[in-house]
Design a protein around this nucleic acid. Structure first.
Lengths: 233, 233, 233, 233
DNA sequence: CATGAATGAGTATTCATTCAT
DNA sequence: TATGAATGAATACTCATTCAT
């Protein structure tokens, strides 16, 4: 019983190096931008040669894509863990959104990577959702949560896709705004305000009564905001 | 009264050409990205020489900045016009937000420019607000509107800056999401859903009563969302 | 009546520069080989920048192709001039072949270019003949000359294509051998020997009679060389 | 009588592997060119590692040289065998030339190697003749054969070196032309035409009498082809 | 003033070769 | 000894910017 001749492949080493390269690359890309990030500089910071980087990632672009994908995987993990830690569906949603916001609060460079990806590679956009089959599965999961909450009369009877979209847009806008304006508000305070407004609404009791919320059954053309919007433009 | 010798400078022509260059540049930058946009190509499309472009804008970067600034100026105008067209403060806010959304719906390339600016020039970020002195002035205007609405008991007693931020983030996230996901929902429907949720909240009457909204006076550490968020992470 | 604004295009300058670049490029490629020829070095020798070279020839490969094509055009010209200078068909052939040999004797670097082209770009081979429609035309011309010489009983009754091929191969082999062995025999002496052998043959009168030449009518399988060749292998 | 300790070196294995590497290398070099042939690819096709190849051949260049030398050795063997198989000196020459042509007909990749060698390593040119001491020896052999044939009045009284050169150039040109034009003429037919022309000449009996062949004694400046050639140029 | 020609800094990628295991 | 990992020199090509005409 003899093993193959020559140096055996060390999978551990490969995995570790791959991760090291990606982490450093994410930082550099976020700091300098895509074009201004020189593979030479990345190599120097990692104490390896340029050639080594190209052994692991055949092109600069694939290096970038792998870096962003690694970050998003970490994001998905953080959100899943947070959602799984509570049972109540409403709490699950809040927990997931909070985890999402906290992740970007902790890893601001990932926002930068998302922006860079869009700026440099208009075609291939990563997202929290649209990866592999997980996308559909995950999508469906949130839709069920929301449907359940509506059925148990905890959330208003609104189209779940509208809800999902507004919540998603709000999260998206928040992380981008935070990042780009360099806003440094305490994380908890910001999350708090966000949830308060989105769940309780801005209207006072009195105003809410004056302007009845759009009901699903209502003829859309009579919705108060719709008509306003159209009048204005 | 004699005029200077030689052919008088045609200011009209200069202004017109400047505008033409900026419009075409905005389209090209949005379509190709910053680095991939070749001044040579821009020149060809405009039927002028590269040299001419550099007479009007000393560097590519200044050309880009001027293009984005021109777009934002148009945005501000559209928003101002919309807000000025109504009197009621609440309607003013809705009108302004609607105009904002509609502008990006009509000019999706401007979203692209915002992304490019961040990706390429991390230092110099344009925004709807922070330009010149108008920023502060404008800021103050919206703060006053909101304060008035709170005093007249139409909006709940929340910190106006929180409100402004959440509304801003929601708009921001909406235009980015729309652009990047290629979402093609009818504009009015989307705006409608957004306003409904943000003004009336997601909770049903019953749920709202169970979970009292955060009050300004309340000790933050006891806020329901805050505590949840912290527990989860 | 005014001319267009701006600097007018100087066609003269363009042509001159193109020719300068090609001549220098041919020398450098021949001296160093394709891969080892650095565009930077070529630019330096021409006292222009690398960018200028790439203005005229979009890729290194197209530069090479243009250089070789320019040389072959000169070759074709030299051969045509030589053939046109005499009237007798036999003399035309001799004149053309002599001009061919002399051209490569005067421009040994062109042999090198032919070798390089084959070595680097197996697909795209230039040749004296196969360019444009001239190829067929030129081909036909020589075939007619040979046919005429056979009909007037000056050349033996052999298939003209065989003759053309053997003559062509002999020329080809001569220029390659000369170049690669660095043979420095007097040009005239070499041409002389070549023509003597190819027209009079190596055999003595007596030997010729013993071994009757292959006749067109003869059954090929009985040709004396053929049978020998097959026996030997 | 004891042998050295340890596993004895398997010379057989080494020789076999060396040969395998060279054969595969010859194919790859011929197919891809020198620069485009990747040692990694060669290694993969041989199911060994790059390191192993470099154990057998210290540089890529030496690998190439060994590959070409191996091919030429096979060529020399084929030619020798063919020449040794017949006794008559004239038949020896014909047999040798036929074997030469047939070798390259069977191994077209070797032509490619000869071209590559010249293109990449202008200094070190392999040839059928100029290897080791065999060169001179072999050279002398053919010279003696030709001298003998002239003395026995079977070949005309021409300088043997001229004859050798013209024959050599013709062979050389034939294999190159065949290879580069992709000519697919039946081998025997082509060899036939070549021998017929070179031994019997192109002229008819009548034309031969009109144009007396160049004699060795003749003053060169009066040779018929010479004068023509000079007049034309 | 507009044009077109020239410039040259800047960079991803390849691959022969070395060497630790 | 054979392997596989690491190295780093070497180089075509782009394009913003300058400037002679």
């Amino acid at each position: 019983m003899s093993r193959r001749p020559g140096r055996p492949i060390d999978v551990q080493l490969q995995e570790r190096r791959r991760a090291e390269i990606l982490d450093q690359a994410a930082k550099l890309f976020a700091a300098r931008g895509y074009a201004s990030t020189d593979t030479q500089e990345l190599a120097a910071e990692l104490n390896v040669s340029k050639g080594t980087i190209f052994r692991y990632f055949p092109t600069k672009r694939e290096l970038f894509s792998a870096a962003i994908e690694r970050s998003l995987e970490q994001l998905r993990l953080a959100v899943d863990v947070a959602a799984d830690a509570v049972d109540d569906p409403l709490e699950k949603i809040i927990a997931a959104m909070t985890a999402y916001l906290r992740f970007f609060d902790d890893h601001p460079e990932v926002v930068e990577l998302l922006i860079l990806e869009r700026a440099e590679f208009k075609d291939r956009i990563s997202s929290y959702f649209d990866r592999r089959d997980r996308g559909a599965e995950c999508d469906e999961y949130w839709r069920l949560l929301l449907t359940g909450l509506i059925e148990t009369r905890r959330l208003r009877e609104l189209p779940v896709d509208h809800i999902r979209q507004v919540l998603g847009d709000l999260l998206y806008g928040t992380i981008f705004s935070n990042h780009m304006s360099g806003r440094a508000r305490p994380f908890a305070e910001q999350a708090n305000a966000l949830f308060d407004i989105v769940f309780h609404g801005l209207f006072t009791e009195r105003e809410r009564r004056r302007t009845a919320p759009v009901s699903l059954a209502a003829d859309e053309s009579h919705s108060p905001y719709e008509s306003q919007a159209e009048q204005m433009i």
